[in-house]
Design a protein around this nucleic acid. Structure first.
Lengths: 235, 235
DNA sequence: CCCACTTTGTGCACCGGTTCACAAAGGGAC
DNA sequence: GTCCCTTTGTGAACCGGTGCACAAAGTGGG
């Protein structure tokens, strides 16, 4: 099979496509477990919850890995997507902030699937330092730079209070980290070249509330009241 | 002041705008605490990390609440955005799945800030049922429909294992809930009219890994090497 | 009252991404 | 080999969103 290294491959994959590749990967892993050898774009699209044309265009950005009339080889596609996402490497992740959320992240199995490794937990609270969580001992934030360097940490998860997030971000960036997953509810200012992804639970809820309000307004002219909720509709 | 109820107001606010309103609201609350009476689109845009023209266009979808030559009245704008997002109401939220993540969510202060109230915690594990977390007693999943009805729950947070998520989603939807925040790493199938928002920690990490790979490839041809191997669990 | 200055609100060109629809490519039957 | 069937890969129209740039609107000073 001839691999095309044309303008599509090795040249900027659209951000929207990158965001969907993990979705395809998860669906493909499920199919591989069930023993499927090949899958059509239609079936994979349904499993991933997207339009099949979109899926084909996404995969075409990686190269021509399908066979017309047949579909895609499941194992081969898993390998190609994994490679593209960089999951064939081992990524050391440090979690800063070991409060409720940090603990949950450290213990959350599905969170860190293949390719990621929680390499360190750090916190500023002396009460927390030394605790053993998920097989790791919590270290003091003073060790931040040393830990990042010694363990080759390249991705940092921020689970600190909002007030501390910017300060910690500045330090990890100064230590050479350029990929940050931020759970603190603040807009971080970072220099060019640093990738920040933000997960904001409060914002997600507020977006849901907006749509929920629209729906209930449309039906009743106001929000639903307890004890007045209609009996279950059979769907 | 004459409020315009033209085509802009009360008719479809762009989804991208809705997603940014909570950001503006947070920045405005910070400004109100610091005693600022008015704010220009430029200053607010910087605080929220967006382009000022975008901010003005976003706000124009709610109506003309600014004063040319002056800016926006902070308190008034907070009220308008809160109202638009439905935060002047009280939303009862149920969290299903009280594992590490569910506990973190229940305790996460910033998560349930204004307008939201955790009204119930539910789990299938008899070992967990009865535990007291964040002032609530964990109830058995069998009570799901009754709890939703009695407490007027309109938003459900799914923090269950992936295998249980679809089943729980089906039940809460049958009980009349149309807004779900899903933390389980599965694509949920839901009927028309139900709003799902997904938070997938694993996907966020994979997207970061993709960009990190690009960056390190460009510089060194490979990932950073650790001097010291962590005693971490491979998850 | 008039002018200079500030800041909003928006028309318009542009851009990334989505979707349709179909030609091209491969497989299998005979 | 030929024909028919399936499914990919992609050209092209479309769509929502972004950002520039500016006219409109309001403030304050003299």
């Amino acid at each position: 099979m001839i691999r095309r290294l044309s303008q599509a491959r090795e040249r900027g994959i659209p951000e929207a496509t990158v965001a969907r590749l993990p979705l395809y990967l998860r669906a493909l892993n499920g199919m591989a477990e069930r023993g499927l050898a090949t899958v059509s774009s239609e079936d994979l699209a349904v499993a991933a919850g997207v339009n099949s044309a979109k899926l084909r265009k996404d995969l075409s950005h990686l190269g021509s890995y399908g066979t017309r009339g047949v579909g895609y080889d499941v194992e081969y596609l898993i390998y190609q997507i994994s490679r593209e996402l960089g999951l064939t490497q081992d990524w050391a992740v440090a979690i800063v902030g070991v409060g409720n959320l940090g603990r949950a992240l450290a213990n959350y199995g599905g969170f860190v699937s293949r390719g990621f490794r929680v390499a360190a937990l750090l916190d500023a609270d002396p009460e927390v330092v030394g605790d053993h969580i998920a097989g790791l001992s919590v270290e003091h934030i003073d060790e931040l730079e040393a830990v990042i360097r010694r363990r080759g940490v390249s991705i940092v998860v921020l689970a600190t209070p909002a007030a501390a997030a910017q300060q910690v971000a500045d330090r990890v960036i100064a230590a050479g980290v350029t990929s940050i997953l931020n759970f603190a509810p603040v807009v971080l200012a970072v220099p060019e070249g640093v990738d920040i992804r933000k997960v904001d639970l409060s914002i997600e809820l507020q977006i849901l509330a907006f749509h929920e309000q629209r729906k209930t307004d449309r039906m009743t002219g106001g929000p639903a009241m307890a004890e007045e909720w209609p009996e279950a509709v059979d769907l």
